[in-house]
Each structure stands twice: as C-alpha cells, then as structure tokens.
Write a protein that binds this DNA or RNA. Structure first.
Length: 358
DNA sequence: AATGAATGCAACCGCTTTTCA
DNA sequence: GTGAAAAGCGGTTGCATTCAT
C-alpha cells in the first residue's frame, strides 16, 4: 500500500480562507462540469488550491442545498438524540438533517450544545446526569470486578465464562437503550446488587397489550420506564402495526442468545456459544457454570474487555452495523426485530415527543 | 479606548474506507 | 488480487470577532 499525500504535488497551493473570486471560479466550474475528480479539478477550474480543499469548500459552504443559520429546536433535539445513539458520527447525524453539514453540526455541538448540556447537568459524552459520569464500558468493567470481588460467580469462574461476559454485555446494551428512552428513570447499573443479574425484570403492562403474568422476583430494571413514554405517542405509533412487541419479548431474547454481542465472537466461540454450552439461568437463583475455554482479562476502569477468539469493536458504529446486519437477516428471531422496532418507533422517530432532558 | 481572554467557525490534517483500473 | 486514487470522516487548528476588564 502506498499513497501520495494529498496535494503533495501541489506545493505552493493557497491555503486559508477562500476569496469570493475563488468561490465564483469553483461554482462556475461545477455548474458547467459537475463535481468529482477533485484532484484534477483545481487545474481545470483555474484554482490554486488543493483538490481536497475544493471539495471541502463545496461540500461545506457552496453546495446549493446547504441550509445556514440558526438551528431550530427540532434540529437540536434530533442532534442530541442521534448523538446519544451514534456518538461523534457527525456525517451520520448530518444525514438526518437535510441541508446541514457534518462540519456545521460538529461545530455547533462543540460550541453550543455541549455547553448547554453541561449547564443542564448532563454529561455531553454519556448523556447521563453528571453525577453518573461513568462510561458504559467502565460500568461493565466495574460490574464484573464487583462480581468477582464478592465471589458471586464462584472461584474465578467468571474469568473462564464467556457466557457470563457476553450476557452482561447484552444486559448493558439494553440498559443503555432504556437510559436513552428515560434517562432519569433508570438507575445506574452499578447500583444494582449483582445478584439481581440472575433475575428477570418485572413486565410492564401499562400501554402494552400483554397477558404475561407479573414476575414476583426482584426487579433488575426499574419498572415503569416504558410508562414514562407519553402514552399517546406510544399507542398511536404501535397500535397501527400488526405485531405488538412487548418488553417481555425483548427480555426473552436473552435466553435465546440471538443478540449480536458488543464484542465480535469468533466462529469457534460462536459454535461453543450456540452449541453445548449451559444457559445462564435468569429465572433461577444462579448463573450456571459453563466449561472453560480459556481466560478472560478484565481491567476495571478501562475499556479492556477481551476474551479468547474475540475482537473488540473499534467503535459504536461497528456495533450498529452488526445490528443492521442482524436485523436484515431474515433468519433472526423476530422478537429482537420487534424490540428494535419498538425502540426505533418510540425513541428515534419521534424526536419532538419522546421524553428526555433536552 | 486599549488590551487580553474567550468564543465561534471555516479550513486543515491525517487517517480510513471505497472505488476502480 | 493488488495498489493507487478518490472520497469520506472526525479531530484539531488558526484566526476573526466578541466580550470583559
């Protein structure tokens, strides 16, 4: 592999702010010839600029569909919600805001919205109350450390137990989703007694058509989080669908082990996971042990969760891509699709009406 | 009025991903 | 299949403007 640096051959090209006449030249050229071939464009357009600079100027400033000026409340709300889900994926966020560029959104976030969230006592990175400032990974690591520390999982069996780690990561994902839906209603996962990891949440019956009996066991996830969603939003959007997903359905998927992990599982371990392994007993009183396949290193306070045959996702977008693939897979269990339909419908597609601190 | 600090934003930089020959 | 070019992305920088003293 090798690639000449951008503009290597363009020594002496102009940098810095664009002059109006440069803008005119660029627009005139693109009007006549369209855009693309950015490297050769400056010469053809008579500009003493590097192609990359021309592209940036066009994309971020000169494009006719650019929308400038103050962000509306609705746009702000959309940005906050998408940022909570996607993180600093500015281009993905921008794709949901017609006329806005990734650069503009990024700048707006860093200069206005971060400040606003801090003033509201919200951590702009985690979107959680600032007293609750730990990253999700830190939460998981600490949870694991706590579990190891109190001997809940026996004598180091957690370190030898891929199932426990993967299920805890799944749990963390659900927890994060619920926090996004109702950030103030869901206690930090660290505050739960880790014994409750083996219990099933109490089904929430309000607003959901369900015949599922209430589970008398201790709650792991705060009941009522779904109730916090404005009822008319929930019912209007859900009742038009053929299938009514329930929280119970989502939870049951834990036991089917069909949730894409927060870590990528190798084929070898996937066979292991879906084959002869013993399932964790969510209804029972303990997590059943599974055969050891090697050691797991867990570093509390870091993002270092590794276990044999796995690779850690480099970013949240990888996780999201896995989710997209998973949801596109027709063989996937429909209950996860239902859960995501629910999550998407209630949270992502109703930016003006779903609850939140913004 | 002068000056230094803070702010906002356009543009740059370096890297990754995608496309294409 | 390979490598170069192009496109895309996100973090950072530099500078003009605004604010505070």
């Amino acid at each position: 592999m090798g690639r000449s640096p951008c503009c290597d051959q363009d020594k002496g090209v102009k940098k810095g702010p664009w002059m109006p006449e440069e803008d005119d030249k660029l627009m005139a050229y693109i009007d006549q010839n369209g855009y693309g071939k950015w490297r050769s464009l400056p010469n053809l357009a008579g500009l003493n600029r590097c192609g990359k600079s021309c592209r940036l100027r066009w994309m971020n400033y000169l494009r006719p569909d650019i929308r400038r000026g103050e962000f509306t409340d609705k746009e702000e709300s959309t940005i906050v919600k998408l940022h909570a889900l996607l993180g600093n994926k500015w281009s993905k966020i921008a794709s949901h805001l017609p006329g806005r560029t990734d650069n503009e959104i990024k700048n707006y976030w860093n200069t206005h919205m971060r400040k606003k969230m801090l003033q509201m006592g919200i951590n702009p990175i985690t979107h959680e109350p600032r007293t609750n400032d730990l990253s999700p990974i830190l939460d998981v690591s600490q949870m694991l450390a706590a579990a190891i520390g109190n001997g809940q999982f026996g004598n180091n069996t957690l370190f030898n137990n891929n199932i426990a780690v993967e299920d805890l990561l799944k749990l963390q994902l659900i927890h994060k989703m619920l926090q996004i839906i109702t950030p103030k209603a869901i206690p930090n996962i660290n505050s739960f007694n880790t014994n409750s990891l083996n219990t099933k949440p109490e089904p929430v019956v309000n607003n959901i058509k369900t015949n599922i009996p209430v589970d008398p066991k201790p709650k792991m996830v705060a009941a009522g989080q779904l109730n916090a969603i404005e009822p008319h939003v929930f019912t209007n959007q859900i009742e038009n669908e053929d299938f009514m997903p329930s929280f119970e359905d989502a939870w049951d998927c834990f036991e089917d082990n069909q949730l894409p992990g927060l870590v990528t599982v190798s084929q070898e371990n996937r066979n292991y996971l879906t084959g002869a392994r013993m399932m964790p007993d969510y209804y029972g009183d303990q997590l059943r042990e599974v055969p050891s396949t090697g050691s797991i290193s867990v570093t509390p306070g870091t993002s270092g969760l590794n276990y044999p045959g796995t690779t850690q996702h480099s970013s949240s977008s990888d996780v999201l891509e896995d989710w997209e693939k998973f949801l596109d897979d027709e063989t996937s269990d429909s209950c996860w699709k239902s859960f995501f339909f629910f999550f998407n419908t209630v949270y992502l597609t109703s930016p003006t009406s779903s609850p939140g601190p913004w």
